[in-house]
Amino acid sequence: MPSSETGSPSPERCCGAGVGVHGLFALGSSSEVAFLTDRQRAVALETVVEAVAGRVPVLAGVIDMTTPRVLAHAETARAAGADALVATAPFYARTHPAEIARHFRAVRSRSGLPLYAYDLPVSVHSKLSVPLVRELAEDGTLAGLKDSSGDEGSLRRLIVELGGRHGRAEGTAPSFSILTGSELTVDAAVLAGADGVVPGLGNVDPAGYVRLYQAARDGDLDRSVEEQERLVKLFGMVDAGPEAEMGRNSSAIGAFKHALRLLGVFAHGTTAAPQIQLSDASVALVEQRLREAGLLPVR
């Protein structure tokens, strides 16, 4: 179940909708959700829903610091026609697991839409524990989890807790979707029993992640590893911006946006303030990665 994490694409070339992805996650990290005004969020989501036109489900990020703010975003998402919501734990103030559970339960019950948890400790500074996720899966609060924690051991433990690779159909939460957010370990995650991937790099090469997902689901280890290694090299574009000159988020998001511009999806590669823009030399490195990955013709 590959799903692109997208911002506001052109309606003609909505990222991934024509190459076989099973859904779109709008307003996630790669779509600069933390940098957008509420109005910009709404416009981005409305654009995605319009472009998709019901072909695949649209999961809307409602990421914010507190429950009331998330509920406000949830109402906007429901009005825009989103099929499900994606929320992190509350952040800024440190939160206890009991408070995180109350947060997710409030969003689920008051929004009326399926809710996916977004485990993103690098930004939220709170790791969702396996017991907490299992509890919220079993009581129906969460429909699934996007794990962008980078903790592959924790992801594997969750898969095992919910029945393992072969046993989840008869497990404690068979309808719960476990999705990895790691661009670099999709083959391993799917082979271990994850249900799919929501990769930021999927905006740039959605077809590659569809091929990777299918190969892993088919148990074709050689084909899945080959595709994963190609995508690992393509992912190197996130370091196009010099580390001494700009933040890693500025570099990565700038690389994705310029890649989409070079591929004819976006009109420009400008990132939201206060992120630093990629230089021409850095953009040239992004272009080189695209050519090496076969996404642009080799000169």
Rank of each mutant, 00 (worst) to 15 (best):
E229H: 14
E183L: 10
A189E: 03
A192Q: 10
E229N: 15
Y209W: 08
E229A: 14
G164Q: 06
I159W: 03
A189S: 01
D139S: 03
R223I: 14
S148I: 01
G171F: 04
A189H: 03
G167F: 04
E226G: 08
Q228A: 03
D147N: 02
G144M: 00
A207L: 13
L158D: 03
V186W: 00
L136D: 02
R168G: 08
R157C: 11
G167A: 06
L221T: 13
G167H: 06
R230C: 09
G202N: 02
L142H: 06
V197K: 06
A194E: 07
V186R: 03
G164R: 08
G181R: 02
E138V: 15
L191V: 14
K233W: 12
G202E: 04
A173Y: 01
S224M: 10
E170F: 14
G140W: 00
G153C: 00
D187Y: 11
T185E: 11
G200D: 07
G140E: 00
G140V: 07
L212M: 09
G163W: 03
S224C: 13
G208E: 11
I178L: 06
S154I: 12
A137W: 06
G171W: 01
Q228N: 08
S148C: 07
G150A: 01
S182R: 12
G208M: 09
R211E: 15
L212V: 07
S148L: 07
L158P: 03
R211M: 14
V225M: 12
V160L: 13
A173V: 10
Y209A: 00
S175L: 14
R165K: 12
S175V: 14
N203T: 15
V160Q: 08
Y209Q: 10
R134S: 09
S182D: 11
Q214G: 12
E135S: 08
V225G: 08
G144F: 05
S224D: 01
G144T: 02
